Amino acid sequence: MTPPTPRRYAGLSSDQRSALRRESLMEAGMELFAASGNRGATMTAICAQAKLTERYFYESFSSRDELLEKILDGIADEVRDAGLAALRASDGTLEQRVRDAIASFVTILTDDPRKGRVAMIESAAYEPLRTHRRAVLHGFAQMVADEATQMYGDRAWPPRQGQINGLLFVGGLAELVTAWLNKEIDISPEEIVEAATYQFTSTAHH
């Protein structure tokens, strides 16, 4: 017996409508968390911003904190995918590929400052996101160390030193972007990219 075809509304299946609601909630969460931090990004406010009821919130997320973690993870995935694509491009010098990878990180967090504020500022100000953010940064530091080993081969630092350098690099770049987002430093995103490129290419090998 052929299973019944799922009902569609406005041309969308139930799963497609559920995915759109989830996307609307995440967009609303990012908007409110970036604008007013933990206190402003309540579940009630997120639902109101997304024009959805709490019933639909619980369809996708078990809690407000889970939604905020998923938003942070989504930004991290976007940055990671763009950076690795740039590093593994088949054209360009090694330094150019490093610059492009760093530029992708800086561009994602400065072209849409909401993403920058969520990833760099608001997530650092609120537990449990602070712990989650720290784990994400450590993951990026390890990725930097691994990619340096791939790029520099015998000239790369041994694993322990590479991990230290990776954390110093990622932490320093995060602080620089944070200072830019907070308007604490008179520097352009392009200058951040150039400074970080010089830092990485100068310290990622011996």
Rank of each mutant, 00 (worst) to 15 (best):
S63T: 06
I46N: 04
S63M: 07
A41C: 09
S60T: 14
R39T: 06
I71N: 02
E69T: 15
T42Y: 09
I71R: 01
A50M: 13
R64C: 06
F57R: 06
L52D: 06
L52P: 03
F57H: 11
E69P: 02
K70R: 03
E69Q: 11
E66Y: 15
L52N: 05
L68M: 00
A48P: 13
F61C: 02
Y58P: 10
A41M: 14
C47E: 07
A45L: 01
S62Q: 15
I46M: 11
F57L: 05
I71H: 02
F61S: 01
L52H: 04
L72R: 06
S63Y: 05
E66V: 04
L67K: 01
E54G: 07
C47Q: 08
F61A: 00
F57G: 03
E54M: 08
D65F: 03
S63C: 04
I71D: 00
S62N: 12
L52A: 04
Y58I: 15
D65G: 03
G40S: 15
I46L: 05
R64M: 10
L67W: 02
Y58A: 10
L67S: 01
R64N: 12
K51A: 13
S63W: 07
I71A: 02
R55Q: 14
A48C: 13
E66L: 04
I46Q: 04
A41N: 12
E54S: 06
L52V: 13
K70S: 02
A48G: 04
A50P: 03
K51V: 08
Y56N: 15
T53F: 08
I71G: 02
E54H: 12
A50C: 13
A41D: 14
T53I: 15
T44G: 03
L67N: 00
S60C: 13
A45E: 02
G40D: 07
R55A: 11
T53C: 15
E66K: 10
C47N: 06
T42K: 11
D65S: 03
I71C: 04
E59L: 05
L72M: 07
F57A: 09
Q49D: 13
L52F: 05
K51W: 12
M43T: 12
K51I: 15
T42E: 08
F61K: 00
E66Q: 07
Y56T: 10
G40F: 14
T44Y: 13
F57M: 09
T44P: 08
I46A: 11
Q49W: 06
E66M: 10
L68T: 00
Y56H: 15
C47R: 04
S62Y: 08
R64G: 05
G40I: 04
Q49E: 07
T53L: 14
S63F: 03
L72T: 04
M43H: 11
L72Y: 11
R55S: 13
T53M: 10
E59R: 09
T53S: 10
L52K: 09
E66N: 05
I71Q: 02
M43Q: 12
